[in-house]
């Protein structure tokens, strides 16, 4: 059994911050004839020698995932992050980071799927609408429940979700009541914004009400540059 070397692995070390990306993109590796070599690379080949990169991108467009599977995976993600941090703010940052890498890929996929009718969003309202409908619908199969602009600050907007799916089975203990695991979704939103050149910070805050005990607000705070550009555009 041969040990894998860099030729076999098609992966580029990916980091959320594009400025520190290392490595070079590689082409699809040549087809292997022996099964033993499949253990040396992380890529799985089916019996017809096709890998995941040979699938059509629209294949998973209408597929569904069991909520229970996701809940267990997400729970493990939270536990994993919890072991490596000390403090609630750090835990939220870690979850944000997990969501960030997903958001980057999701943005590319969604824009590719829009095809020729895709429009590059240049206005704040446009990109927020895109997130509220398209992005949310592709992940959760329903649009977000509300979009508001903050009255106090020019650069703050709020996206409202009455019942974030990722939080549906999670009960945060009282001593960590500030934690909202929807920081994961906040990371996704932040990545989509960054990818469309609207840099900012997104945080998740729980605002429980009588009827909606799980209501969450995603606070989106744009950078100075975005607000300036927005005012220039008129």
């Amino acid at each position: 059994m041969q040990r894998g070397d860099s030729l076999n692995s098609p992966f580029v070390p990916f980091s959320p911050n594009p400025s520190i990306q290392q490595g070079t993109p590689t082409s699809t590796p040549p087809l292997k004839h022996t099964l033993s070599s499949s253990t040396s690379s992380n890529l799985r080949y089916s019996s017809s020698r096709k890998s995941i990169y040979d699938r059509h991108l629209n294949r998973s467009q209408r597929s569904e995932l069991s909520k229970a599977s996701f809940a267990f995976l997400f729970g493990e993600m939270v536990q994993y992050a919890q072991k490596r941090v000390n403090g609630i703010a750090d835990l939220e940052k870690k979850l944000n980071l997990h969501g960030y890498s997903i958001g980057q890929r999701l943005l590319e996929l969604l824009l590719w799927r829009e095809g020729r009718s895709a429009k590059r969003e240049t206005r704040i309202l446009g990109i927020l609408q895109f997130i509220t409908t398209t992005v949310y619908r592709s992940i959760f199969n329903k649009p977000a429940d509300g979009l508001e602009k903050s009255r106090d600050n020019e650069d703050e907007y709020m996206l409202i979700d009455n019942d974030p799916m990722v939080n549906s089975y999670i009960s945060v203990p009282k001593e960590m009541s500030q934690l909202n695991c929807a920081a994961f979704v906040a990371g996704i939103i932040e990545a989509v914004l960054d990818g469309c050149l609207f840099p900012g910070r997104v945080t998740a805050h729980s605002v429980p009400t009588e009827q909606l005990p799980a209501k969450t607000v995603f606070l989106i705070k744009f950078d100075e540059s975005v607000i300036e550009r927005e005012s220039v555009l008129g």
Binding site: F72, G75, E76, Y169, I170, S171, P173, C181
Partner: peptide, 16 residues
Amino acid sequence: KNPFYQIEMPIRCEAF
């Protein structure tokens, strides 16, 4: 499915 629950420990899950 609650990541904050330790197995076999007393249940303190508000959602439950």
